[in-house]
Design a protein around this nucleic acid. Sequence first.
DNA 1: CGTGGGATTGACGGGCATCAACTTTCGTGG
DNA 2: CCACGAAAGTTGATGCCCGTCAATCCCACG
Lengths: 232, 232
Amino acid sequence: MRDEDLQEMRQLPLFEGVGAAYVESLLRSAFVQRFPAHVELVHEGDPADFLYVIVQGQVEIYAGYRDRETTISVLGPGNSFIIAAVLLDRVYLKSARGLTPTRILMLPAEAVREGFAEDAHFARALAVDMALAYRGVVKELKNQKLRSSLERLANWLIAEEEKGGSTGKLEIPYDKKVLASRLGMAPEVLSRSIAALIPYKVDIRGRHVQLNDREALLSLARPVPTIDDPAC
Amino acid sequence: MRDEDLQEMRQLPLFEGVGAAYVESLLRSAFVQRFPAHVELVHEGDPADFLYVIVQGQVEIYAGYRDRETTISVLGPGNSFIIAAVLLDRVYLKSARGLTPTRILMLPAEAVREGFAEDAHFARALAVDMALAYRGVVKELKNQKLRSSLERLANWLIAEEEKGGSTGKLEIPYDKKVLASRLGMAPEVLSRSIAALIPYKVDIRGRHVQLNDREALLSLARPVPTIDDPAC
DNA sequence: CGTGGGATTGACGGGCATCAACTTTCGTGG
DNA sequence: CCACGAAAGTTGATGCCCGTCAATCCCACG
């Protein structure tokens, strides 16, 4: 790894609170790789050879079954994926592909498992990361089982708008097709759901969205902390 | 805690590979509690004061939203729950109630967090447990998003039959109502789905089930390791 | 033996997927 | 920079999966 990369990598949230010397020794066995968009980075069922950390770009985590496919989540810089498979030395449960060109830090699974045993701070960082990911999936499962498509969309809009600073405006950060899959519906249903939000003063043009009546949308969405609060 | 209990607790899978002395010091701050059936053990949204480990009985993990409720999972002896909330010192995302009378080991959250920092073996045990739970939820999310009700039922039957030793027979271990919720459908739909499996030679009487044509059921269910294999 | 909750069955409606046609957007190369 | 083709997105028609409400049945329990 180049020295310049090395400086950048140690800023990653995964290494927060971990001794600089130890981070460096970890990174010695790692490398940074660039991938073009739409390339499959990992495939479900494959043995977990690496822990991946996104440096640049967007990565779609998805899974397939028969001829179906669904998006589990979309991750960005700083996020890591497939910690659990690496830690347990099992196969990946999900696949991943870049939605944009990406730059990815790849840590050999062996080194990560050793790191967990050798450095308590790194172990903690890994565990915290995994715990957060775990809670994320639990929330998503609740979201799926307890809400209708329209409710999921409404809540997603509110959450996304808050992530962007509660300005009343937001940008859909990827194709509607991907958003539909993430929300667990067919693309056609997303289109219709969007149309169904017009009475709530939701104005969608392409990827640009304006929420003109937050109260109305909130009364439809009814967000709760235990599903929607990312800090919860 | 009574000395007799103490002997029993250290056998728990959560303490596997952890030094006996350390387990004992952990258990000193813990206690074992009996609860009658149907009592709510933890409620979503409450701060995570304890890590719970089931010693005896069945516990339903569930979550509510508006007037709806869904079962996330049903756990038995040896399983622990809500590790992630304890580790992160956040609120519980799910509620739990006993389906039967239960005996539960309660470890103060503070002690667990300290334990994670102090004892590498315990940290590993916690992380492994959490990783397994994480992968469980991921599988369940895939199950929900990629399969129809009937497919979920068929796969559940096969998995349950294999858990019981592939004898072609199995017992539904709790109310059909709970099973329906776990599988993500209304109780009425479960009834109908069961009826729909008659052509596949599935014979259900009360809680007793016989699978008389495994091949036929398999061709309907189409299980895959990355969703259905518990050892995966 | 009566009572109440679980389970089943029927009727009905709505949510959502699918297929198809059409429009729009976007990336690519001329 | 524009033109073109392909992919994404929208809209309509249709049907099924599944949830809801209600009535009935069944069993476990007191």
